[in-house]
Simulated assay, not measured.
Amino acid sequence: MSSLFGSIRSMDIDDIVVEKLKQLNQWREDREWIKSGFVFGDKEGIPPTVKMLNQTVRRLGALTDIQKQFRTYILRHTHISLLAEAGVDLNFIMNRVGHKNSDTTTKIYLHVTSGMRVAATEKMHDKFTRLLQN
């Protein structure tokens, strides 16, 4: 049982996420769904299975032009990539996703995104502009 709870951790969430979760709870209350301790669950309060989540993610993926196979893990990968693209510190990312070894985070997740390329190009342009002005 300890392995099940080994990956549970607290994290900060944005006010937008808090508002969306409140809306979800209100939607459930309006439909008289059973309350449970789970953020996501069916009308009986039972959390979804991994198989059910993967089916949902695949259906959502089919609505996009992205050619990758969609599984729930793509959400984690995208989350980490967006944190890196936003310039979030590697140690913070590691803590947030439960990595103890930076190699896991850097080798698997922190590939260079197009947003990171643009940001690096802009930083270099600014740096060279300042150097040339001196």
Rank of each mutant, 00 (worst) to 15 (best):
S3I: 11
F5L: 08
G6L: 10
S7A: 10
R9Y: 03
S10D: 13
S10I: 11
D12W: 12
I13Y: 00
D14G: 07
D14A: 11
D14R: 12
D15I: 10
I16Y: 15
I16S: 13
K20G: 08
L24S: 07
L24E: 11
Q26F: 11
Q26S: 12
R28S: 02
R28K: 10
R28N: 03
D30G: 09
D30R: 11
R31P: 08
E32P: 06
I34W: 05
S36W: 04
S36I: 06
V39S: 06
V39I: 13
V39W: 09
F40N: 14
F40Y: 15
D42F: 08
K43R: 15
G45T: 07
G45E: 06
G45K: 09
P47W: 04
V50Y: 15
K51P: 08
M52A: 13
N54T: 08
T56A: 15
T56N: 13
V57Q: 00
V57M: 04
V57D: 00
R58M: 12
R58Q: 15
R59N: 13
L63H: 03
T64W: 07
T64R: 07
D65V: 01
I66L: 04
K68Q: 09
R71D: 06
Y73I: 01
I74W: 05
L75T: 07
R76D: 01
H77C: 03
I80T: 02
I80S: 02
I80C: 01
L82E: 04
E85H: 02
G87P: 03
G87W: 01
G87T: 00
V88G: 04
L90Q: 13
L90E: 10
N91P: 01
F92G: 00
I93D: 00
M94P: 05
M94H: 09
N95G: 12
N95L: 06
N95M: 11
R96S: 02
V97I: 12
H99F: 03
K100H: 15
N101M: 04
T104G: 14
T104H: 08
T105E: 00
T106F: 06
I108T: 14
L110T: 05
V112T: 10
V112W: 05
T113W: 02
S114Q: 14
G115F: 01
M116C: 01
R117T: 05
R117Y: 03
R117H: 02
V118S: 01
V118P: 04
A119H: 00
T121M: 08
E122L: 02
E122M: 01
K123R: 09
K123M: 00
M124R: 02
K127M: 08
K127W: 05
F128N: 00
T129F: 04
R130W: 05
L131R: 04
L131D: 06
L132A: 09
N134A: 05
